[in-house]
């Protein structure tokens, strides 16, 4: 009797639990809490060290790039901008120093030009921050547009089957046939001069195919499950089945797709801009900066390193976040072997 009374208040003990709780169990003395699905996911996500580190790194990059040179008309804390040139100090070498003096370094300080100056004396920190802002903006727009388009098309194809499915999937096949770099370069040449937001949008419209295939596969497997059949048998409408029963089950894969799409977009945009086909002047982006100064690699290597480091930081942190989200939503992938 005592056992029943004790386990009645807990929710984690399932009927299939092989070990019935005994009085001597330490767990009996502990406070067993009921957790919702989203709380479980959040906990799993926060336990993923790489994902948390990625969140911190991405947050740092975003805050640094926006707060330093400001956003649009709002000024930031950094006193130089990316347009004006000044006299070259020490051939424009970076003045940033992170090694403290007691370790034989130059002390920890930013200096006049922490990332150095380019060949005409522009402050390279401000320029890199400007490029980071634009690259982040494009990557975010591209990632979201690609995911939304891909989800809509994949979900429609997976749920409705029949003619609609074959038409949508053939369209996807046609788009997969065209290498991303070719497709993206062409839309970037056609619409890239209309501003970075438009560039992000059109890049999203050519990179949704992976998401569509992923979502379709997931929806296909879910719509065969018994609970969908049950919903259908009591006369639930298609719209309600999609929103109430299918969407919550594919939301994990959609969120993971966003992160993958964003990190792919960072690299795609920078590659395009490097080839001279992405962001057009007067706007700049990290890839474009590298392209402009690629000949300076030997004489002014810092012009080459800083933008590259920021591209890697963004792509790497987003990838880690995506990995953490995948583990959080689908813990089966992460189980330990016995």
């Amino acid at each position: 009797m005592a056992q029943t009374a004790q386990s009645a208040g807990t929710h984690t003990v399932t009927p299939g639990d092989p070990r019935p709780p005994a009085d001597s169990d330490a767990a009996q003395g502990l406070d067993i809490k009921a957790r919702t699905q989203s709380q479980l996911i959040l906990r799993r996500f926060l336990r993923h060290k790489g994902a948390v580190a990625g969140m911190l790194l991405l947050g740092f990059v975003v805050v640094l790039s926006i707060s330093s040179i400001g956003l649009g008309p709002i000024p930031g804390w950094w006193d130089k901008n990316y347009v004006n040139s000044a006299d070259l100090v020490n051939r424009g070498r970076p003045t940033l120093s992170v090694v403290p003096e007691f370790l034989g370094g130059g002390g920890m300080h930013l200096g006049e030009h922490p990332f150095g100056q380019d060949n005409i004396g522009r402050d390279y920190f401000a320029l890199t921050m400007r490029g980071t802002q634009i690259s982040l903006l494009i990557a975010f727009i591209t990632g979201v547009v690609a995911t939304v388009t891909g989800t809509l098309i994949g979900a429609a194809a997976g749920f409705f089957r029949g003619r609609l499915e074959s038409v949508l999937m053939r369209i996807t096949d046609v788009m997969i046939t065209i290498p991303t770099i070719l497709f993206a370069a062409m839309v970037a040449v056609m619409w890239g001069n209309k501003g970075v937001a438009v560039l992000g949008l059109v890049l999203g419209l050519v990179t949704w195919t992976q998401v569509a295939r992923l979502v379709r596969g997931e929806v296909l497997s879910i719509r065969e499950k018994e609970f969908i059949e049950a919903a259908r048998s009591v006369g639930t409408s298609a719209a309600r089945i999609i929103v109430k029963h299918i969407l919550p089950n594919v939301i994990g894969i959609i969120i993971v797709s966003v992160t993958l799409a964003i990190s792919a977009a960072v690299l795609l945009e920078s590659a395009l801009s490097f080839l001279g086909m992405g962001v057009q002047p007067p706007d700049t982006s990290l890839g474009r900066i590298i392209n402009e100064y690629r000949t300076a690699m030997v004489t002014r290597p810092w012009l080459f390193y800083w933008p590259g480091i920021f591209i890697i930081a963004i792509a790497l942190s987003v990838n880690f976040i995506g990995d953490g989200l995948r583990d959080a939503f689908d813990p089966r992938q992460n189980r330990v072997r016995d």
Binding site: L267, S270, F274, G287, G308, I311, L316, N319, F320
Partner: peptide, 14 residues
């Protein structure tokens, strides 16, 4: 693998 996955190809090439 994560780091390589995030590398811009043109940067590595240079």
């Amino acid at each position: 693998a994560f780091v390589f996955f995030s590398l811009p190809l043109f940067w590595v090439g240079s």
